[in-house]
Computed example of a mutant assay.
Amino acid sequence: MRATAVPARVGRFAMRFSSTPRGARLARRLTGNRLETWDIPYDSTAHDDIVLIVAELAANAVRHGRVPGRDFRLTLTVVGPSVRVEVSDARSEREPVTSAPSGHCDSGRGLLMVAALSARWGWGPRDDGPGKTVWAEYQLPHCV
């Protein structure tokens, strides 16, 4: 049995978006489009998972990382079998909550979902100004 070769994918996409629900939706839609150009097709599990990761991180940037007048930045990087998602916002004093929500809370599950979908994730100080960057790395299956 022959091993399935992983397509040689290399690409980078970076863009700033307004820290509004509309900006988060646009980030999600442009991610889907970019993944398609990187041969990660619509309706594939990998495509859906990565778009969901972006949706959660962008929504968090808008909801918890918003500073009036400051945008959030989305960066997607694909190298071979790995896609890295980075979302940078302008608030450094609000750290991502990494524990499960208690009680009947309707929020707080987004990062748990990101953790479940990604190979690894984390956060750190933003490298180009005040704020933080939350990142997740997704491992593509060999058959995408």
Rank of each mutant, 00 (worst) to 15 (best):
101 P>A: 08
35 L>F: 00
69 G>H: 12
77 T>C: 02
91 R>Y: 02
24 A>Q: 05
64 H>A: 08
29 R>T: 14
54 V>N: 05
94 R>H: 14
25 R>E: 12
80 G>L: 10
62 V>Y: 01
94 R>N: 10
106 D>P: 09
88 S>Y: 01
95 E>M: 15
76 L>T: 06
79 V>W: 00
85 V>N: 04
103 G>E: 09
105 C>E: 14
66 R>T: 12
93 E>I: 11
58 A>R: 00
47 H>I: 03
24 A>V: 07
119 A>L: 06
93 E>M: 00
22 R>F: 09
39 D>R: 14
79 V>S: 06
88 S>N: 06
99 S>I: 08
71 D>M: 05
21 P>R: 09
72 F>E: 11
92 S>Q: 09
90 A>E: 00
37 T>W: 06
117 L>A: 03
32 G>Q: 05
111 L>G: 05
91 R>K: 13
45 T>F: 05
63 R>W: 00
44 S>E: 04
110 G>F: 07
51 V>G: 02
44 S>H: 05
64 H>K: 00
21 P>G: 07
70 R>A: 14
32 G>D: 06
109 R>C: 05
114 V>F: 03
59 A>M: 04
78 V>L: 03
31 T>M: 04
78 V>A: 08
93 E>D: 15
62 V>E: 01
67 V>K: 12
91 R>A: 10
24 A>H: 07
54 V>F: 02
60 N>C: 02
116 A>G: 11
95 E>Q: 12
52 L>R: 11
96 P>W: 05
71 D>R: 08
